Amino acid sequence: MFFASDNAGPAHPKVIEAVMRANDGYAMPYGAEDAMARVRGKLRDLLGMPNAAIYLVATGTATNALMLATMCKPFQTIFCSEVAHIEEDECGAPEFFTSGAKLTLVDAPQAKMTAEHLREAIDSTADGVVHGVQRGPVSITTVTERGTVYTLDEQKALVNVAREYGLPVHLDGARFANAVASLGCTAADMAQGFDAISFGATKNGCMGVEAAVFADPAHAWEFELRRKRGGHLFSKHRFLSAQMEAYLDGDLWLEMAQSANAACARLVAGLRNIKTVTLANDSEANMIYLTFPRAAHRRLKDAGAQFYSMGTMDGPDDEPVLARIVCDWSATAENADRFLRILEG
């Protein structure tokens, strides 16, 4: 019953096998291996971006921060949700790699920015005035940090607002696959309109690889320099390419995301029938925020369940305590059902 994080799940056997095959013999370093050329072609086709510049980085934080640094000057601001991953979970990396660009936080009902709130945030900046930060890129996180997913229309509305102001748009897609699986759309549909995309794989069954995708190849050289200067250019790059190639082959990326989302949906359906449980918001992919009594938190953990309790275990048994549950590709129906039985008591 491991529902603490999709980061904690195992790598898929096909990914491990691909890494082992890549270890046979010699290959050119730093992304010059044949596999990287194949990965680049596959991602261009998948995302519907025939001219995209595509690079691999080992972590999501580095991918987001290096991409935003390429798109944003130090005296500009990045517009993002008040609960965006770049705000909550990256330890100031975007500010560090951009040499000090500010994050402007946008109101986000259900953890999603709206076009109206984004416009208000952009209008509130003192663009053109030397005393204030200037307008920079818009960054969208989906799946959001609360488990909700932007619809394609919601994404399009945000992109359109950014375009009105001449601002580039970045997609933080650490859970890109889960969002595609949730919406039932294509990867190209999801990518539509974005200038830069972080195409995540680590959370969804890889060992450690993310793709940085720029629609405009004019960004390529600066990103390459920033990746090298930031210490994120792998010498034995073939092991990144091997993971990503296996991830893309036969739509393994989508199969794993669908599995994770299905386990989460099974949990949500069961949770709705437990009177002591309150879902904090919509759960549309592979993450759930919910409250239930402290006694049930203790009972689950005593039984070996792994999940995040967002509060102390000291206090009244019947007091509701917030929890976060995340399903990865390997989550089983059996473990979901067992979790529900123990929770219900």
Rank of each mutant, 00 (worst) to 15 (best):
T98M: 09
K156Q: 09
S139W: 08
M71W: 05
L118R: 02
A93P: 04
V106F: 12
T141Q: 00
G147W: 02
K102H: 09
E87S: 15
Y150C: 03
R146Q: 12
A115G: 12
L158S: 06
G100R: 09
F75V: 01
L68F: 10
F79Q: 06
G100H: 10
G147K: 07
A121R: 02
G92Q: 07
E154M: 04
V106W: 04
A62I: 07
G136Y: 10
G147P: 00
M67Y: 04
C80A: 15
S99F: 12
D89A: 15
F97H: 06
N64T: 14
Q134R: 11
F96R: 09
L105D: 13
R135D: 09
T63E: 05
R135F: 05
E95W: 14
V138L: 15
G147F: 06
L152T: 02
E82W: 06
L152F: 08
P74R: 07
M71S: 08
A58R: 10
K102V: 05
T98N: 08
V129D: 12
T104Q: 14
I78C: 08
T142Q: 07
E82H: 13
Y150D: 01
A65D: 05
V143E: 02
L152S: 06
V106I: 14
N64L: 14
K112Q: 08
D107K: 12
T125A: 14
D123G: 12
C91N: 14
K102L: 13
S124Q: 11
G136C: 14
T114N: 07
K73W: 08
D153K: 07
A62E: 02
E95L: 14
F97V: 08
T59Y: 13
F79H: 08
F96S: 06
E90D: 13
L103T: 10
F96Y: 13
T61V: 11
E95P: 03
R119Y: 01
A157N: 10
T141P: 01
Y150V: 05
V143K: 00
D107G: 11
E82K: 11
E154Y: 01
P94C: 15
T125P: 01
D153I: 04
M113L: 10
L66W: 03
A84E: 06
N64C: 15
F79D: 07
G136I: 10
G136D: 12
L152G: 04
A65M: 05
R135S: 14
D123Y: 09
A101E: 05
A111S: 11
T63R: 04
I78D: 02
K102P: 03
V83C: 10
G92Y: 04
V133L: 12
T98P: 07
M113R: 05
T104V: 15
P74G: 06
V143F: 00
I122M: 05
L118P: 01
E88Y: 15
Q110I: 00
G100K: 11
D107A: 14
V106M: 06
L118W: 06
K156S: 06
G147V: 04
K73R: 15
T144I: 00
A115W: 00
F97R: 07
D89W: 04
T63Q: 07
A69E: 02
G136W: 10
M71P: 05
D107Q: 13
A65Q: 04
T59P: 07
T148I: 04
T61Y: 01
I78M: 08
A93E: 11
D127N: 14
A108G: 01
R119P: 00
K73L: 11
G147S: 08
T142W: 05
A157K: 08
G132P: 03
A157C: 10
C91A: 15
